Computed example of a mutant assay.
Amino acid sequence: MRVSGVGVRATVFLSESDTWHGKSLCHHVVGEAQRLGLAGATVSRAVEGYGASTVLHTDRLLSASDDLPLVVTVIDSEHRIRHLLRELQRPLDGRMVVLDTVTVLRGPAG
């Protein structure tokens, strides 16, 4: 593995029920990242979590939760991440986004 540079990781915390103009908000975030040409985006579904409401959402069978937490992760240059977040300012209003600096490693192409 070799260091290919320093980037910024944006971690966006959502839930399955979050929407923007009738579309899943996580799909909107990924679509905007793709439209802007960012390096990539990943959506992960959590098995359990709670947010500002302190209501616990879990995938445990007996709880039958259909509103699990989602995390969208996007890594690119700081400039491109900040541009994405400006484009998503209204859709992400009130949601938590965490930015951190990361070292990007790349393996040999194969």
Rank of each mutant, 00 (worst) to 15 (best):
T11C: 14
V12E: 01
V12H: 00
F13H: 05
L14V: 05
L14E: 01
S15I: 02
S15D: 01
S15K: 11
S15G: 10
E16T: 09
E16M: 13
T19P: 03
W20L: 11
W20S: 00
H21V: 10
G22Q: 14
K23G: 03
S24M: 11
L25Y: 06
L25R: 05
C26H: 07
C26M: 10
H27W: 10
H28N: 04
V29T: 04
V29W: 02
V30Y: 08
V30K: 13
G31V: 00
G31R: 03
G31C: 09
G31E: 06
G31M: 03
G31T: 00
E32H: 08
A33R: 00
A33C: 14
Q34G: 01
Q34N: 09
Q34E: 08
L36N: 13
L38C: 13
L38D: 01
L38A: 08
L38H: 04
A39G: 07
G40I: 15
G40F: 15
A41K: 06
A41E: 07
T42G: 12
V43C: 06
V43Y: 14
S44E: 05
S44N: 02
R45Q: 12
R45L: 08
R45F: 11
R45Y: 15
A46M: 14
A46K: 02
A46N: 03
V47G: 15
V47N: 15
V47W: 01
V47L: 11
E48T: 10
E48N: 09
E48S: 07
G49A: 09
G49W: 14
G49E: 13
G49Y: 12
G49V: 03
Y50K: 00
Y50S: 07
G51W: 00
S53Q: 12
L56Y: 15
L56I: 14
L56K: 13
H57F: 13
H57W: 08
T58E: 02
D59L: 12
R60W: 09
R60Y: 11
L61R: 06
L62N: 08
L62H: 13
S63Q: 12
S63A: 13
S63K: 05
A64R: 12
D66A: 10
D67V: 13
D67G: 02
D67C: 12
L68I: 05
L68D: 05
L68G: 05
L68T: 07
P69C: 03
P69A: 11
P69S: 04
L70H: 02
V72G: 03
V72M: 08
V74A: 01
I75V: 13
S77Q: 10
S77H: 01
S77K: 01
H79T: 10
H79F: 15
H79W: 14
R80H: 07
R80T: 04
I81Q: 02
I81N: 00
I81F: 01
R82K: 06
R82T: 11
R82P: 04
R82L: 15
R82W: 12
H83M: 13
L84W: 06
L85H: 10
R86C: 11
E87M: 09
Q89M: 10
Q89G: 01
R90G: 04
P91C: 04
D93F: 09
D93C: 03
G94A: 04
R95K: 11
M96E: 09
M96N: 10
V97E: 03
V97K: 01
V98S: 05
V98A: 08
V98E: 08
L99V: 01
L99K: 11
T101K: 15
